[in-house]
Computed example of a mutant assay.
Amino acid sequence: MASIRKRVGIKRTSYEFTVSHTVNGESKPIKKGGFRTKSEAKAAAAELEAQLAKGLNPVTKKISFVEYFDEWIGLYKKDKVSTTTLKHYEYSLNAVREYFSGTPIQNINGQEYQKFLNWFGSNKAKETVAKVHGHIKSCVKDAIEDQLIQIDFTRKAKPHWTVQAKKSIEKHLNYGDSEQLLQTIWSKVDEGLGYSLLLLILTSGLRFGKAVGLTRKDFDFTENTIKINKTWGYKKNSLPGFGLTKNEQSNRTIRLDKITMNHFKELFNTTPTNIHELVFYSPESKYKVISNTNANNLLKKLLLELNIEPITVHGLRHTHASVLLYKKLSIHYVSERLGHSDIETTLKEYTHVITELRLQEEQDTVQIFESMAV
Rank of each mutant, 00 (worst) to 15 (best):
L299C: 10
L303R: 02
L298M: 15
L325Q: 02
L316F: 09
L298G: 06
N297Q: 08
L299D: 00
H320R: 03
H314Q: 15
I311T: 08
L324F: 08
S322A: 01
H318G: 06
K301F: 08
N296M: 14
V323T: 06
N307G: 00
V323I: 07
I311G: 07
V313A: 13
V313Q: 13
N307I: 00
E309Q: 14
T319M: 01
V323H: 01
T312A: 14
P310Q: 08
L324D: 11
K301Q: 12
N307E: 06
P310F: 02
L302Q: 05
I308G: 07
G315T: 05
K301A: 09
L304N: 15
V313N: 12
H318I: 09
V313R: 11
K301E: 12
L303S: 06
V323M: 15
L324R: 09
N296D: 14
K300I: 00
E305N: 15
L306K: 06
A321G: 04
P310Y: 09
E305G: 15
V313T: 14
H314C: 10
V323Y: 01
L298D: 10
H320L: 11
E309I: 04
S322L: 00
L302M: 11
H320M: 11
N307M: 02
E305C: 08
N296V: 11
V323G: 06
L304F: 02
L303Q: 06
L324C: 13
P310T: 01
V323P: 02
H320V: 08
N296P: 15
R317S: 12
E305S: 14
E305Q: 14
N296F: 11
T319W: 07
L324A: 11
G315W: 03
V323C: 07
L302V: 06
N307F: 03
N296H: 13
T319A: 03
V313I: 15
H320E: 03
A321V: 04
V313K: 13
L306D: 04
E309L: 02
L304D: 15
L306S: 01
I308L: 05
P310W: 02
T319D: 00
R317N: 03
L306I: 00
L298F: 08
V313Y: 12
L298V: 05
S322V: 01
E309P: 01
L325C: 04
L304M: 13
L316H: 12
E305W: 07
V323N: 05
K301G: 03
H314F: 14
I308S: 07
S322M: 00
N296C: 14
L324K: 14
E305A: 11
T319G: 04
L304C: 14
L306C: 10
L299Y: 03
L303H: 07
L303A: 04
T312K: 13
L325Y: 01
H320C: 12
H318F: 02
E309S: 11
H314A: 13
V313S: 12
N297H: 13
L303W: 03
N296E: 09
I311S: 10
K300W: 00
I311F: 10
L299G: 01
L298S: 10
K300M: 07
E309G: 04
K301V: 03
N307T: 07
L299E: 03
L325H: 04
H314I: 04
H320A: 12
G315P: 11
N296A: 14
L303I: 02
P310G: 04
E305K: 15
H320T: 09
L299H: 00
E309A: 10
L302S: 04
L306H: 08
L306A: 00
L299R: 00
L303C: 09
